[in-house]
Amino acid sequence: MTGAKTGTKTGTKSGPAKWIAWVAMLVVIVVALFVGTVGQPSPTEAERAQNLAETIRCPSCKSQAVASSETPASKAVRELIWERIEAGDTDEEIRDYVASRFPGQDLLLDPEGSGFSGLVWALPVVFVIAAVAGLVMRFAGYRAQPLTASQEDKSLVDAALRASENGEKP
């Protein structure tokens, strides 16, 4: 998909006929992605429990999720998740409930997007934007001064050409 875009963007000076293969490819890709993504069943309760368990840290371990540890604490959290799902709580309510037992967001493996911990999500985005902006500015700066041969360059080239015509080494 992305590849085709690069192709079409960069110009069509040779006429649209040359792009037929790319257009065909784009069509195939879009159809395949459509077939591959549409009509996904919504997650079952077991899947919800598993997904939640993957975002909650095992209280007695170091950085493992409760989904992947066998400690009693993890088992207790997994049971709790099940109870709450059956009681009809939303994922967010369950996460908040479990987290409230421990100081701060100690038990959440993905920090919340708001407040101070939101920085961990925002800073990388700022980083990328700044880097790309910096690069774009550099390119723009280069464009503003088009590469032209100076008089000095031209005389050098002329001299070299003359020399090679005369059969000498430049």
Partner: peptide, 10 residues
């Protein structure tokens, strides 16, 4: 002064 854990999902 906040306790935050950053794990696999992040």
């Amino acid at each position: 002064g906040e306790k935050v854990t950053v794990g696999v999902p992040y």
